[in-house]
């Protein structure tokens, strides 16, 4: 069966050990985590966890059910598909030799990202977008030499009715 990438977000009690329950479930049951984000919501008693996972459909069903079974998981939604807005952020440190500087800035401009740190030999670029955009940007920057990269993992929110 074909593996599918799913993005799931859940509201959980903002208590010690809750993240460990969620992560422990994935490792204990052999589910895969591609990325994971956690932060409190406006209600400080509640945090939002966003997980990107890859599995075949029956396993995705199990993951959802198992997560819902955790006592500290208040609400879970599968955000896969166009009904949700998805964004990921990355900080990319790219080698910037004098002959490449202009080209890098042009790319930065096209992708509407920002240079947040400049040095003699490097730029740090801040980029936000969906996964496709980040991949495209990385492909373009690769020939210059990517020194380091920090990615946030995906975040998602359901679109409100217009």
């Amino acid at each position: 069966m074909q593996e599918e990438k799913h993005i799931m977000t859940m509201l959980v009690d903002n208590e010690p050990g809750v993240l460990s329950r969620v992560v422990g479930l994935f490792s204990g049951k052999g589910f895969n985590i591609e990325s994971l984000c956690v932060a409190p919501t406006m209600d400080l008693k509640v945090s939002r966890i966003t997980i990107v996972t890859k599995a075949n459909p029956p396993v995705i069903e199990q993951i959802e059910k198992q997560l819902r079974k955790l006592i500290n998981v208040i609400k879970l939604r599968d955000m896969t598909g166009p009904k949700a807005v998805k964004r990921e952020m990355a900080l990319i440190c790219v080698r910037a030799k004098p002959e490449h500087r202009a080209e890098i800035l042009r790319i930065v401009d096209i992708f509407r990202c920002k240079v947040v740190d400049v040095g003699l030999e490097h730029y740090i670029i801040e980029v936000t977008g969906d996964e496709g955009k980040l991949t495209a940007l990385l492909n373009l920057l690769k020939p210059m030499g990517i020194e380091k990269i920090a990615r946030s993992g995906a975040l998602a929110l359901y679109r409100e009715p217009r």
Binding site: P16, G17, S20, R21, G24, L25, G28, I71
Partner: peptide
């Protein structure tokens, strides 16, 4: 013990 028994309890508390 809460960490140890997390995967084998329905729920646990400290």
């Amino acid at each position: 013990i809460v960490g140890i028994t997390r995967p084998c309890t329905k729920h646990n508390y400290l």
